[in-house]
């Protein structure tokens, strides 16, 4: 599996304004198994890029290809299969169900396409320090806790690419490291690539290449 970007540019961007970018309007290839760190200051389109890659939005020119198929040609069913088997994401706005418990939020993803046995949820929660929050309503958790919930949820399924959009913005240094460690372990177990976008470089992310957006 390979994801390739062929000169993509959000329709609301000017090509002249992004001439310095190593992603926009450039040919980029994300090979399976290779981690990529995208460093992006505010307003450079980091979240848009993640949405484009995950097939949430199509408002860009150029092409994003999963192997030979353009993501714009994926219908809703095909996108669903892609999200179950090939690609997982931690969105910047997290997108959790506020009225469900932390456990239910994670389990609903695990049920859809299972990679781990069910007790792994508690084990992961324990590693990230939210084990006693599992039965709490998600909406009542702090933003930092919610970030960890979203990370654990993204790690329940099989994937070849894991997209992370500022996944640690509300975590302290110790928790960032723990989360990064867990994520990299999980990616290795699947021989998967991590594409992590953040405002500045994260030192403990073992990236094969660094791209400035």
């Amino acid at each position: 599996m390979q994801i390739s970007l062929q000169k993509i540019l959000p329709v609301f961007f000017n090509a002249a304004d992004v001439s310095h970018s190593q992603v926009w309007n450039q040919p980029v290839v994300f090979d399976e198994g290779a981690n990529t760190h995208i460093i992006a200051p505010s307003g450079s389109g980091k979240t848009s890029l993640m949405h484009f890659l995950y097939g949430l939005r199509n408002d860009f020119t150029g092409e994003i290809k999963y192997d030979d198929t353009s993501i714009k040609d994926f219908d809703k069913e095909k996108k669903a299969t892609l999200r179950q088997q090939t690609i997982s994401i931690v969105l910047q706005d997290l997108r959790l169900f506020p009225d469900q418990t932390v456990y239910e939020n994670i389990a609903i993803k695990r049920l859809l396409s299972t990679f781990h046995p069910v007790d792994k949820i508690a084990a992961m929660a324990s590693r990230l320090g939210i084990q006693n929050k599992l039965q709490q309503l998600c909406g009542t958790c702090s933003y930092g806790e919610q970030q960890r919930i979203a990370i654990i949820r993204a790690l329940q399924q099989p994937f070849k690419y894991l997209l992370l959009d500022e996944p640690f913005s509300n975590l302290d240094e110790a928790n960032r490291e723990k989360a990064m460690e867990l994520i990299q372990e999980e990616a290795s177990a699947r021989k998967a690539s991590i594409i992590l976008a953040d405002l500045k470089k994260i030192d403990y992310f073992n990236a094969g290449s660094i791209l400035n957006l």
């Binding site: 069913e77 669903a80 892609l82 999200r83 169900f97």
Partner: peptide
């Protein structure tokens, strides 16, 4: 909102 999120998570519209 919930249904949209389920679709985002990879639930198939057919299913």
């Amino acid at each position: 909102d919930n249904l949209q999120l389920l679709l985002t998570l990879g639930y198939s519209p057919n299913w």
